[in-house]
Amino acid sequence: MNAHKDMAMPFEASSDRRGRQKLDRETVNTLVVFGLSIVLIVCSRFISPALGSWSQVLTVLILASFLIILSFGQGLVILIGGLDLSIPALITLGGVLTTTWIGTGDAGVWYMLPAILVVCAMVGAVSGIGIVWLKVPPFIMTMATSIVVASVALGYTSGTPRGGSPSSLLWLMKSWFLGVPVVIYFTLAFILFGWLLQNFTALGRRLRALGTNRNAALIAGVGVNRLELVPYAISAACAGFVGMMLVGYSNGATLRMGDSYMLPSIAAVVIGGSSILGGSGTFIGTVGGAILLTTLGTVISAIGLSEGWRTIIEGAIIVGALLVLRGEFLTHVGNRMLTRGK
């Protein structure tokens, strides 16, 4: 035992203790999630020989890239203890604006794409304003934004979005480089960026402080009110960007293009080990969650399960992940594996 001999006897009954080399919950969870993804890919060969091949893995990764980018935004919102239910509407908004404002060809794409992202971010900021200043609970405010945006998109397109994909987005989604789709390089860069932003920047640190304890963060001098808008704006911009990617992927926009991403975006974050109460989580874990979910989705499709069953499985995964991650279940398991006995 490493009794802290040099330490003055603490007054409080609780002493400073740190279980030897405690693996924290986030690390254990990330390892488990990535491990499960790999196992699932390998096992999927037994279901169908087409699954588990290299090209199949690449397809899964392309599909996962949408979810990875979305769940970065959702993850930041959950990090501060909120919930973003407006993601599908903003995917649609990003997609519809891309096809109608830019359309096929590439005219003005260099300023139009950023402009569309700014529009989306502003919509997200509006949700944030409602949450911070009007004190509307996050899930209700984002739900309200969502329905307003969806109606605007519906009205704006009169029900059927026109136009096709700018060629630069087609290039991003369809071209290959050194035997790997370009979008995968892009996603890797995004993962690096997101991981650094969430865990190693002043902004990320402040967001985590805000999610851990708003009051304490405020007293420590963090400008919590304005800060709270940021994740909603980022999440909306991410959703808008995924809308663009989907335009490139399927060469067009539809009004329901975002619908199937709402639950997975939450599920990926929760499975990735973030606490739904806020204040903890890493983006790497979320990435693992996104890959696991996408793999699972592919396997479900291969088996031929209907949309309903797929939804049920997603719901069960969310509840299961919440239950498993409640308390320090994984930490206990992890530590027990490291240190046997007392």
Partner: peptide, 13 residues
């Protein structure tokens, strides 16, 4: 949220 999703899935089934 979890039970809502599961119920909606059942409805779809």
């Amino acid at each position: 949220l979890g039970t809502m999703i599961i119920c909606q899935g059942l409805a779809l089934v």
